[in-house]
Deep mutational scan, measured.
Amino acid sequence: KTYTFRVRIVDEETGEEKEIEVTAKSEEEAKKAAEELKKKYPNLKVELE
Rank of each mutant, 00 (worst) to 15 (best):
K31H: 12
G15H: 03
V10A: 03
R8V: 10
T2Y: 14
I20Y: 10
V22P: 00
T14I: 02
E21D: 05
E36Y: 12
E35Y: 10
E27T: 06
E28Y: 10
E19R: 11
L44Y: 11
K31F: 12
K25Q: 12
Y3S: 02
E47P: 04
A34W: 15
S26K: 01
Y3T: 03
K40P: 02
E19Q: 10
E27Q: 10
Y41H: 06
K39F: 08
K38V: 11
E36P: 01
E29K: 02
E13C: 14
F5N: 00
I9M: 08
T4Y: 12
L37R: 01
I9Y: 12
V7K: 00
V7M: 06
E27A: 10
A34P: 00
R8P: 01
K32R: 12
E35N: 10
K32I: 11
T23P: 04
Y3P: 05
F5R: 00
E19F: 15
L37P: 00
L48M: 11
T23K: 11
K25V: 12
Y41V: 03
K38Q: 13
E49A: 13
Y3Q: 04
T2D: 11
N43S: 07
R6N: 04
L44C: 14
E36K: 08
T4R: 11
E13F: 11
T2A: 07
K31L: 14
E27G: 04
K39H: 09
T23H: 14
E16S: 05
E28P: 04
A34L: 15
P42Q: 05
E36S: 07
K32N: 09
P42C: 06
S26E: 02
D11Y: 03
L37F: 09
K32E: 11
A24F: 14
K31R: 13
K25N: 14
K18I: 15
T2P: 06
S26R: 01
T4G: 03
E49N: 10
R6S: 05
K39S: 07
E16K: 05
Y41Q: 03
L48P: 05
K32T: 08
F5V: 06
E28T: 07
K32M: 12
K45T: 10
V10R: 12
R6V: 14
E13T: 12
D11E: 03
S26L: 01
V10F: 13
N43Y: 11
E28F: 09
K40N: 06
D11S: 03
T4E: 03
V10M: 08
T2W: 15
P42H: 05
L37C: 06
K32F: 10
K25D: 12
A33V: 15
K32V: 10
E12K: 08
T4Q: 05
L44K: 09
K25W: 12
E36V: 09
T4M: 09
I9W: 15
V46M: 08
A33C: 15
V10S: 05
Y41L: 03
K1H: 08
E35Q: 11
T4V: 12
N43I: 04
K40W: 07
E28L: 11
T2C: 15
A30F: 11
R8N: 03
E27H: 12
V7I: 15
T23G: 03
L44V: 07
E29V: 03
P42Y: 04
A34K: 07
E21R: 06
T4F: 11
K25L: 11
V22L: 13
K45F: 09
E47G: 05
V22C: 13
A34R: 06
K40T: 06
E19S: 13
E21A: 06
T4P: 05
